[in-house]
Each structure stands twice: as C-alpha cells, then as structure tokens.
C-alpha cells in the first residue's frame, strides 16, 4: 500500500514515489503541485491567500502563494528534482457562496488562482494542468509514481488533470 500523505490547510508536503500527496475539501483555496517526471519527486501545497504582504499574520509561509510556492520549490530541489523538468498543476479557487454584492474576500478564489499562476510563471515553471473556479469543493491528490493529479468533487465527478 503506497503511502498517503495528508496536506492540511496552509500546509506543504514534498515526497517521492510511490507516495501520494492528498489535500481534502478545498474551497477557495488552491492545491498547487510540482512534479519532476523523471525523478518522480514532487510536492503539494495548499494555499489560502494570494499575497503575504497584504496580511498581518504571515509567519506560516505555506498559507500564501507568493511565499509557499518558492518554499515548495526549494524543498523539491533538495530532494534532487531538476528545476528544468518541473511542471506544475493547480486546482481549487472556487467561490462557494454566491452573493449579489460579493466582496473581494468572497472572490478570493479567483485571486488565488491568478496569484498562483503569476508566481509559477515568475519562477519559470510551466502550468500543465488546471481546474479552477466554479462554486464547488475539491479534494485533490498527486500520485508521485505517475504525476497524475486527481480532482474529486461531489457533484461534478472526478477528473485527472
């Protein structure tokens, strides 16, 4: 039985095959994976907010796209991953409740997705799979043996990105 590693909210885990990294019940949060297909190492990061500089509490770097992604990159490089081979996938960023006058914080899902892509592009890591937006929750996992990133939902089924 391959190891199943849980990634909590505002949390980051890295590992190597045959482990699977999984994060349950993402709403507006984003699950960002990095993967080196040749060495079969990677990581999964569960961010809540786009930007640590906009926040009063930024000690937990895995909470934010701008600090969590570089930290995950460092950790997978330490496991031997090659920066040039790394690919990223992202999922989440929903808006769970529809309000007519949705405030910025209600639309944080969209901003999270945009920030994640911007940070990844700044680091030169291609985003090869994406499933963001909508108004539903997602459980996401990445199988480090294959790099397959599975997105499970309650009403919209399951898909691989």
């Amino acid at each position: 039985m391959p190891e199943l590693v849980k990634v909590g909210m505002a949390d980051l885990k890295v590992g190597k095959a045959p482990a699977t990294l999984i994060s349950y019940g993402l709403g507006s949060c984003i699950g960002i994976s990095l993967y080196d297909p040749q060495l079969k190492v990677g990581g999964l990061l569960h961010i809540m907010l786009p930007d640590s500089t906009q926040s009063r509490a930024n000690e937990n770097r895995a909470k934010f796209a701008d600090t969590g992604i570089p930290d995950m990159l460092d950790q997978v490089l330490k496991l031997g991953a090659s920066r040039g081979r790394l690919v990223a996938k992202i999922a989440g960023g929903a808006q769970m409740f529809a309000f007519a006058n949705a405030t910025d914080i209600m639309r944080v899902g969209q901003r999270n997705a945009a920030a994640a892509k911007e940070v990844l592009s700044g680091l030169g890591i291609p985003v090869v799979g994406e499933d963001t937006g909508g108004n539903y929750g997602r459980t996401v996992s990445i199988d480090l043996s294959t790099g397959v990133y599975v997105v499970k939902t309650i009403d919209k089924g399951e898909k691989e990105i």
Partner: peptide
C-alpha cells in the same frame, strides 16, 4: 459540499489576520 470547502470561506477571512 465538503465541510472544508464551505468552512474555507470563513477561515480565509481569519487567515489574513492570524493562524
């Protein structure tokens, strides 16, 4: 939906100010 996804709406707001 999933409890985590629904609660995230509240938790993200708190996340800006604390852990």
């Amino acid at each position: 939906d999933m409890a985590g996804a629904i609660l995230s709406v509240v938790l993200i707001q708190l996340g800006q100010m604390g852990d």
